[in-house]
Design a binder for these strands. Structure first.
Lengths: 386, 386
DNA sequence: TGCCGTTAGTTCCATGTCGAAAGAAATCTT
DNA sequence: AAGATTTCTTTCGACATGGAACTAACGGCA
């Protein structure tokens, strides 16, 4: 627990670029890396040598992967030793802490959750410390901790404001560093998920990429040139003022007809409950809509149209190469995907590039994994700043 | 006319970065450039020397500009010799060719327009050649030509499709190069305007920047990281499928309630004409709205709301640091700017960064100037590719 | 089987860029 | 007039880079 790893510094910028390329884009031969980074073959020999000696990279057997029949000397792929470092990611919700351990490549190795019984900052930090200690037993090589919190996070270290925890200016990174001796990064949960998908998920290798999450609230993130665009409102919840349909429903949260009132799980449940008097779970509503029950079907249909409109607007104005729909509320796509697609088409120029839409139902461990990716980034890039 | 200037190559990447910084950001001292480009003072002495010797940069008297009282050796600002090169920009419309000559810094020096009496590609190229020859008499040092055309332009050289000229696959750059001996860049007019504003206008120095033009049609351009995002539909006209208000008017162009049917000059005139039976010019409609005439006021009000909604959506999803409203149809802002602002606020999170909105009424010479900037870019960057 | 073409990777060196440090220049302060 | 301060220049060592020549490992072909 005192393994304080000060990033894999010292790496020269060139070495770091090579390591990053291999980390994100899987096993690559030296000549392939040379092509991707526009470097000479000679430079690659030079840059990879210290990385191989330090054990961060290994030469892997060509074998399975590329079955192309080419002549000439076979290439020698290099790969990151993903297991050489482990990372912890936590997602804090009102009543639970979800934890994961991941490899360098952000594959989840272990899950470990515990109820959160207090919101006192020191007690929460204690609990995170204990959970880390527990995880460290099975994974001795922990290199860093990432923590995702809903709310405003500053400097990747301080929780400026979190309504559900009732925190203001809690120096969470510091508190957990004291207890674990590991470098800690704290970030807004949506931002963390976006970063994770950019490095290792749907947005890997893309220049422009957007993420829209639907769950208890709406989340949105835009990545340009491989970097997430920061924005002022990101930590206070999106979509309350995205008026999708001025004639839409009025719900407790969000303006009339806003994305929040049309799409979030609580709003959909509220609408069905208000219309039918029945308390139904989100899954029951989706099932009911699929089975043709009138009210669930109407609400789900309206939500699907709203989602299609939103996706089209994002495509039209932000022009991402890909949009990822994530969160607990994207089950909507399975039931009403056709309506969404149709609405997107209606709001797009017929000659415009088709929207590349990817759907990924995510649970709380995916959010925790997103936080772990931040710790990976710190190690790789050598800085906690965004 | 045979001065074929093959860009200001040969410049090293470092020299080019310095030249570009001075070109775009005005007179700068060596130490200031060093700070901006994160280079050492020594490097700046080295990099500026050949630029000064070649006559591209000059040392200018400190004088007027910064009246700060500082001690120490006064700085020695360097400036581009903006007049050392001249550029021609053309904007081709259905019945006119608008021409300008600009300096290296894209200041318009001369305007020269001529009616377009034919759409035959060779005859049009002839006319452009004649106009260039005419302009070259007063400006011997022409270094390049930029041409802006409404329609699809490929490779910055070929007009793939232009409905109003009835062109398909016209190698316009080649035709004009043959006649003038100068390097020629052809680009979609909206794209050219966006590039111009990015380098020398409202978007100067910004990382994320959006342009929305309103005129005969709608134009949109997004600049990220200093580079314009290309998109498939840009050359076929935007906004026909941006449904802003599903209950909006139905006009000859655009889907019901689309940006085109709510905002373009022809659609606004159509709506007023359909409701009142009177043919009114755009200016008359704006004046009428300001004076309280019911129908013009209603149409203008609805347009203002649509514009506000669009701007808010662009802000919400593309997150630019600034949005420029340009074109012949932004007179709307003078009459109904308050409604626009109000609508933007209604569609934005109260804590979100305020939208930085700039309005610039532009005429056809501004479009021609945009085209000239492309020629400047080619000279400076040494490539015609986007 | 052995030669050749091809591609991958290595070694070595010339080149060019960079930053650090020290010095020169130009101005203001005291 | 001396010192402080900032700008700019010069010099020099460090170092990343690309290119050339070379070795390595494979398939194709006679």
């Amino acid at each position: 627990m005192t393994t304080r790893t000060a990033s894999w510094l010292p790496l020269s910028p060139g070495e770091r670029a090579v390591a990053l390329e291999v980390l994100v884009h899987g096993p690559l031969s030296r000549s392939e890396i040379a092509r991707r980074l526009s470097l000479s073959a000679g430079s690659l020999t030079r840059l990879t040598k210290p990385l191989l000696e330090s054990g961060l990279l290994v030469e892997v057997p060509e074998g399975a992967a590329l079955a192309e029949v080419r002549q000439g000397r076979p290439s020698q792929p290099l790969d990151i030793v993903a297991e050489s470092r482990s990372f912890v990611g936590f997602k804090i919700t009102e009543d639970m802490v979800y934890g994961v351990v991941t490899t360098l490549r952000s594959e989840i190795v272990t899950r470990y959750d515990r109820p959160l019984t207090t919101h006192d900052p020191d007690r929460v930090a204690d609990q995170l410390g204990e959970m880390t200690a527990e995880l460290a037993r099975a994974h001795p090589g922990l290199a860093g901790i990432g923590i995702g919190v809903g709310g405003l996070v500053q400097e990747r270290a301080v929780v400026g404001e979190s309504p559900f925890l009732e925190w203001r200016d809690v120096r969470l990174a510091e508190l957990v560093e004291e207890r674990t001796g590991l470098p800690v990064v704290v970030e807004n949960d949506v931002s963390a998920l976006v970063e994770a998908e950019t490095w290792f998920g749907a947005g890997r290798g893309l220049d422009r990429f957007a993420v829209l999450t639907i769950g208890a609230g709406i989340g949105y993130g835009l990545v340009l040139g491989g970097t997430r665009v920061p924005c002022a409102e990101e930590d206070r919840g999106f979509g309350r003022h995205w008026i999708v349909n001025p004639n839409g429903p009025l719900t407790p949260e969000g303006a009339r007809g806003s994305a929040v009132s049309l799409l979030t799980i609580p709003s959909i449940r509220y609408q069905v409950q208000a219309a039918t008097g029945r308390e139904m779970t989100y899954e029951e509503i989706l099932a009911g809509a699929a089975a043709g029950e009138p009210m669930p079907a109407r609400v789900v249909d309206e939500a699907a149209r709203a989602l299609g409109t939103l996706v089209a607007q994002i495509s039209n104005f932000a022009m991402p190469q890909k949009i990822l729909l994530a969160g607990e509320g994207v089950g909507l796509m399975e039931v009403a995907g056709a309506t969404v697609e149709e609405t997107i088409r209606a709001h797009r120029h017929p000659l415009a590039a088709p929207v590349h839409l990817e759907t990924k139902v995510s649970d709380f461990h995916d959010w925790a994994r997103g936080a772990a990716v931040l710790a990976i980034q710190v190690l790789v890039l050598g800085t906690a700043k965004a």
